[in-house]
Simulated assay, not measured.
Amino acid sequence: MKPRTLSATSLTGTKVQNLQGENIGDIQDLMIDLETGQVLYVVLSFGGFMGMGDDYFAIPLEALVFSEKEEELVKIDIDKEALKNAPGFDKDNWPLTDEYVHSVYDYYGYERKTLSSRV
């Protein structure tokens, strides 16, 4: 049975592989919409060496495949070349616009689920 809930800290640092078994990177963080409580995207670090020179990429949570058997591993259906062309950002300049979030969902072929705002 797949996990239904995970803490943000349990995801941070988790290794990510593509379906071919290649290491893609590590989960660095989760971006959360404070109005709705929705996870907007997962921040993946890719490239570099020992945290230096890493590129950061936003990935919709829906694009990740979680396994009950391999808790320390998350998979995604993307090859390294496609990831290099994905919407990315500098770790010192995180994008905060709605347009960026929509571009992430468009790139991976997901429709962003919108929840009504809490009042």
Rank of each mutant, 00 (worst) to 15 (best):
T5Q: 12
A63H: 10
V101L: 07
K84I: 03
K2W: 00
E111N: 10
T9C: 07
T14C: 06
D79G: 00
G47S: 02
Q20Y: 01
D79E: 04
L19I: 06
V65W: 04
Y56G: 01
K75I: 01
K91W: 14
Y107Q: 05
V74D: 03
L6F: 15
D29W: 01
F89P: 13
A58K: 07
S10Y: 13
I59N: 05
S116Q: 12
M31D: 12
E68M: 14
F57N: 07
T36F: 14
M50E: 13
T114E: 15
I78V: 08
E81R: 07
N85I: 01
S10P: 15
S10C: 08
L40Q: 14
M50K: 14
A8V: 03
V104A: 01
G25S: 10
D26L: 14
D79L: 05
V119L: 10
L44A: 02
V42K: 08
L19M: 08
D92Q: 13
N93S: 13
A86I: 02
E81G: 04
Y110A: 02
Y107L: 00
V42R: 09
Y110L: 03
S45A: 14
D26S: 09
L11S: 05
D26K: 12
I27N: 02
I59S: 04
G37N: 00
Q28L: 12
L19K: 11
D92K: 13
S45Y: 03
R118I: 10
D54H: 14
F57L: 04
W94Q: 15
Y107P: 00
F49G: 06
F49V: 10
E81H: 03
R4S: 02
E99L: 07
I32F: 07
Q17Y: 13
M31N: 08
F57E: 00
Y110H: 09
Y110K: 06
K80V: 09
F66T: 00
E35K: 15
V42L: 07
S45W: 12
L34M: 12
V39W: 09
M52C: 10
N93D: 10
F66W: 08
F66M: 04
L6R: 15
V74F: 08
F66A: 00
S45L: 09
V74T: 14
Y110I: 03
Y110T: 01
A63K: 15
D92G: 11
L73V: 06
Y41H: 12
T12E: 13
T12M: 09
M52R: 15
P87W: 07
P60L: 00
S10L: 05
T114P: 09
S67I: 00
K75W: 06
I27S: 08
S10A: 04
S103P: 08
A58Q: 05
L40H: 06
L19R: 03
G109S: 03
P60T: 01
D98E: 14
D90G: 03
K84G: 05
I59V: 11
T5W: 11
I27F: 05
Q17R: 11
I32P: 14
G48A: 04
K69H: 13
P95K: 00
N23T: 06
T14G: 06
I76W: 01
F49Q: 08
D98Y: 11
K2Q: 05
E72R: 12
D79S: 10
L30V: 03
L73E: 04
G21H: 02
E81Y: 01
D55L: 02
